Simulated scan of single mutants.
Amino acid sequence: MSHIVTVQDAVTAFADFIEPTDAELDAIEQEMPVILADVDLLDAQIITLDRTPTELDHQRIRRARRRALAARVALINRENASMPGGAA
């Protein structure tokens, strides 16, 4: 029988060296509006799981979907604006 401890030691041996780079942190920061909008959408959807959705629930989900889509569009537009020559 193999022990998980030997595998765990191998996996966590380099944990001190596995830090996000500045570029990865910047990418996360740029994507944060999209992440937060998706969390809001999930929250709106989770609220309706254990009950029949009301008209207010439907409106809340539609608003959250629009915010999530707008955040994604803004992120894509920012990425395209930073490309040399712009988007084709």
Rank of each mutant, 00 (worst) to 15 (best):
G85H: 05
V39I: 10
I76A: 15
L49D: 03
V39N: 06
M83H: 14
E31F: 09
N80I: 02
T54C: 00
D22P: 02
L42A: 08
G86R: 01
T48F: 01
A10Q: 10
I61Y: 01
D43M: 10
I18N: 11
I47E: 10
A68S: 13
P53Q: 00
E79N: 13
H58G: 12
L36W: 08
T48S: 12
Q8L: 15
R65H: 08
L75K: 13
I47Q: 04
D16G: 14
D22I: 10
A64D: 05
L69G: 08
Q30K: 15
L69K: 10
L36C: 00
Q30W: 09
A87P: 05
E29V: 04
E24A: 14
T21K: 09
I61V: 13
Q59P: 01
S2M: 11
H58A: 14
Q30C: 01
D16Y: 02
A44N: 02
E29K: 11
M1Q: 04
E79Y: 05
A71Y: 01
D9T: 05
A37R: 06
R63P: 00
P33C: 03
G85D: 03
Q30P: 01
R67A: 12
A64V: 04
A81W: 00
E19D: 05
D57P: 02
Q59E: 07
A68W: 04
Q30S: 14
V34P: 12
G86W: 00
Q45E: 14
I76P: 00
P53L: 00
Q45W: 04
T48R: 06
L56R: 02
N77G: 10
A88T: 13
H58N: 10
T12V: 10
L42W: 05
H58D: 15
F17E: 13
A88S: 14
T6A: 11
L75S: 09
H58T: 07
Q8V: 08
T21F: 05
E55L: 12
A10L: 13
M83A: 13
T21I: 07
A70K: 12
A13V: 01
E24H: 07
T21V: 03
L49P: 03
Q59I: 15
D40L: 07
P20D: 00
E31I: 05
Q8W: 09
V5N: 06
H58S: 07
V73S: 11
D22T: 02
G85F: 03
A64P: 05
S2H: 12
A71Q: 03
I28L: 15
I4D: 13
M1C: 10
A81G: 08
E31L: 06
D26T: 03
L69S: 15
L25G: 00
E19L: 15
L75M: 12
A70N: 11
A87Y: 02
Q45G: 01
R63F: 04
A15S: 13
T54W: 03
A13Q: 07
